[in-house]
Amino acid sequence: MARWGMVIDLDCCTACQACVVACQAENNQPPPQAGQAQMGRSIAWMELVTYHEGQYPNVKLRILPRPCMHCDEPPCVKVCPVGATYKSEEGIVGQIFGRCIGCRYCTTACPYTVRYFNWYEPVWPEPMQKGLNPDVSIRPKGVVEKCTLCHHRLIKANDLARYENRPLRPGEYVPACVESCPASAMVFGDLDDPESEVSQLAHSRRAFHLLEDLGTEPKVIYLQEKE
């Protein structure tokens, strides 16, 4: 069984935010209303995190695309009292919206702050309403949501593969962020397949995890920039 993971090459990333927009559109994330973003309540499953390195005048701005890490040891799963979040057989940390009671323990437990609480009923401007993705459910007010690694695409790809009586082909299931990256900075695939590009990159010397010391074993692996 596959163990889905992603490698993000920070050398290739140009911070164009195509992944952010693709993720918003693919997963029906509502745009924040006036004032909501100020309170830190906007929802962005994929976000560009910025940080500075060095001292003036030798300062470098670093940018890090940050989806859910889909940890092998997810802290969010351990704290969910109702089993609304769990690690699937294929390593995806899933969120079952219908089961979530909105206690927000998981948003607190997640060290990467990738979990978002729906403080409001989602609202889209009129022209955007027809552009909503029918493959993704619209989360109501009061539940927590997060990156699902576009698993609705996996469901569809699996469905077609089973119908055609063949195994899932490499590259048949790719999340929207990876698909949209114009610089090919993101590579997605089966981490357990030694032949796959993603697993080879994951074992490169440049590979690192975010907050590695926490032992969450993320399946999103970054390749650090060469000097």
Binding site: E89, I96, H151, H152, L154, I155, N158
Partner: peptide, 10 residues
Amino acid sequence: ASVDCVSCHR
């Protein structure tokens, strides 16, 4: 058949 939550829930 699969009883994994995310194989049906989206």
